[in-house]
Amino acid sequence: MKKIILPALIMASVIATLAHAARPYPVRPITNTVVWSAGGGTDAVNRMIMAEMAKVLDTRINVVNKTGGIAGSIGMNSVLSKRPDGYNLVGISSSNVVAAVNGGWNERFDVWSPFIVGSSPDVISVNTDSPITSLQDLVAHQAQSQQAYKAGAGGTGGIHHLYLLELARVSGVDFQFVPYPGSAPSQTAAITGEVDVVITSMAEQAQLIRGGKLRPLAMLHPEPFELEGVGTIPSAFGLYPELAEHLPLSQAIGFAVHQNAPDDVKTKLGKAFEAAMQSPVVKQWARDNYYQLSGKHGEAARDEFAALESYFTWTLQGLGSNKFSPDKFGIPKP
C-alpha cells in the first residue's frame, strides 16, 4: 500500500505544479463564494444567475456561503487571496463597499471586476393600522405631534439606513433610527408596531404589502411603481426633487471576479453573463421578485461600484461611524 501511495504523492506534486490550462477555460467547476448568508437576497440572486450561467459555460458552478467579518470582508479576503484564474467568483452586493473604511480589509473595491445582476428599488412603508397614508401625511403628522418617528431598517450603514438619512435630510422629518440585524426583522417590527416606519427593498416587502400587512407610502426611486393588486406607489422624488442629488443609489447585487483574471476569462464570463441575463428564466424571476435587471459588467460596472463606494464611505464618514477615513484608501469624495 505504502509503496504505491508514496511515489504517487511525489508524482502528484510534480504533475500538479506543471499541469494547468491545458484545455480552454472552464475545465473545472467554478466556485462562487457568496459573502452574505444563505437564503438572503444576494444568495438567491447568485444561485439563480449561476445556475443559468452554468448552462452557457457548460460547467458546474458551486455556490458556497462564507459570511462574517466587516461587510463581508472575510469572504472577500479569502477569494482575493486565491489564484486569479477565474475559477473563484465572489457574490457581493453594494453593502460590501464599506468593508475597507470599517477595517475589514485594506483594498479598494477596484480589485474586483463586478457583474451587476440587478437591484430592487427601496420603498418606505408604515403599518396598515397607522393613520398615515402618504408621504405628505408623514410630514404633516409630525408637525402636529412633535415626536420623532421610530424608523426600522437593517444594519447601521446599510443601504436602507442611508436612504433613511437622505429622506430625513430633504424632508426635515425627525427619525429615530432603530437598527435591526436585517431587513426581515425590521419589517416584522413594523408589522408588530414596534417601529413606525420601515425602509426595505420592494423585493423584500412586496408580499407584506400585497398581504395587507404594510402600507407603502412612497418609492425612494425616480419612477413610481406599479404593484399588482395594490396599485401605483408614487415616487418620493415627485415631492422632493432634491433627492436626485445622491439618489438613486441602486442596491446593486451581483458577483465579481478578480480584476487580475486573464482577459479571455473575463470575456468568456461576460458573454455567459449576457446570455444568462437574456434568458426568459431570469426575466421571469426578476418580474416575480420585483427586481430591476441591470446586466452591467466590465467598465460600466466598475464605475457604478466606484460611485457607490465613494457615496457610502463619505456618508458614513459624516456620521462618524468609520474606523478609517476614506482618504486613507484614496477614495474620492462624491
Binding site: 502528484a12 506534486s13 500538479a16 467547476p29 489564484r83
Partner: peptide, 14 residues
C-alpha cells in the same frame, strides 16, 4: 493549493 488537494483536483477535473 496543497499538494494532494491540487493533485486530486487535477485528476478528477482535468
Amino acid at each position: 493549493y496543497g499538494t494532494v488537494s491540487d493533485f486530486l483536483n487535477y485528476l478528477v477535473y482535468d
